[in-house]
């Protein structure tokens, strides 16, 4: 179909983020009196969409050969997330961790990751989850594609590789779009794309022996003005909790009576 030679293998880079596990209630709740976040030992997990990204990378590698490298930027404990990715079957893991990266916004983060990815070397595909569930910005993916000057396909729910071509289905609000591009390319994936595997026991045990490379800012060739707070155009100036919704009403009593009152309330508020 195309004249270009088939790439022998697929070297894939996956960017992941460690996020607090919001599933684990009541680990994170807002204290209404002090207006602060209560983080009761919120366990760190791999951002759920990033697990889909890892899974997709592993499937492509298993079908086409090549290597999967997982990279993350974050505090030292983000190594746990990378280790899980290794246990799932990734070949290599890199953590970019440095105190000078504190305060990075999405622009600085995408720049730093881009420099990390350049250090890893060449790749055919760069996969991310569509967004992180803590920040929900979905900005790091396109930002990375821009720094690396490669095409981007966001919100992919299906991807297919053929030679140096990629085809994908993008999930839009009320439709999906079939698109095609050439490799290397950046893809962000949705939850629909696959069901992430659990690490197998063999994976877990062998991941323990693998090394997670830790790179500091000095290990990368980068412009100091573009990282951390210095490299971040956006500044968070205030963090607050949304106004508590007006205290709800508890409907109590015998069931038929409660049902009647609920119907009455909904009628008053013009639901019917």
């Amino acid at each position: 179909m195309n004249s270009q030679p088939e790439r022998p293998t697929m070297d894939i880079v996956v960017c992941i983020k460690q996020v607090p596990d919001t599933e684990e209630l009541p680990h994170i709740r807002v204290n209404r009196e002090t207006n602060t976040l209560v983080r009761e030992s919120a366990k760190g997990i791999i951002n759920p969409f990033d697990e889909n990204a890892i899974e997709e990378a592993l499937r492509l590698r298993d079908a086409k050969g090549g290597r999967v490298t997982v990279i993350s930027m974050g505090p030292p404990q983000a190594e746990e997330a990378l280790r899980k990715a290794l246990a799932m079957g990734a070949d290599q893991a890199v953590l970019i961790s440095d105190s000078s990266l504190a305060g990075s916004d999405t622009l600085a983060t995408s720049y730093t990751l881009a420099m990390g990815i350049k250090k890893i070397g060449s790749f055919s595909l760069l996969i991310l989850g569509k967004q992180a569930i803590d920040g929900d910005t979905a900005q790091v993916g396109p930002g990375l594609a821009e720094w690396l000057r490669i095409p981007q396909i966001t919100y992919a729910r299906k991807i297919e590789i053929n030679g140096n071509k990629i085809r994908a289905e993008r999930a839009l609000e009320d439709a999906f779009e079939k698109v095609e591009s050439t490799l290397p390319c950046l893809v962000t994936v949705t939850k629909e794309i696959n069901i992430p595997r659990y690490p197998s026991l063999k994976g877990l045990l062998s991941a323990k022996k693998k090394e997670v490379l830790v790179w500091s800012a000095d290990d990368l060739t980068l412009d100091r003005k573009r990282i951390g707070l210095e490299g971040s155009p956006t500044w968070v100036i205030k963090i607050f909790t949304p106004e508590a919704p007006p205290k709800g009403e508890v409907l109590a009593g015998e069931m038929p009576e409660v049902a009647d009152r609920l119907i009455e309330k909904l009628r008053e508020r013009e639901v019917f």
């Binding site: 595997r197 659990y198 197998s200 026991l201 045990l205």
Partner: peptide, 20 residues
């Protein structure tokens, strides 16, 4: 199938026979 994928059936089986 899940137990198999996770290598759980091979816990006690010696490594030379594909277990853990």
């Amino acid at each position: 199938k899940k137990l198999a994928e996770l290598d759980l059936f091979g816990i006690t089986i010696p490594k030379e026979f594909g277990g853990l």
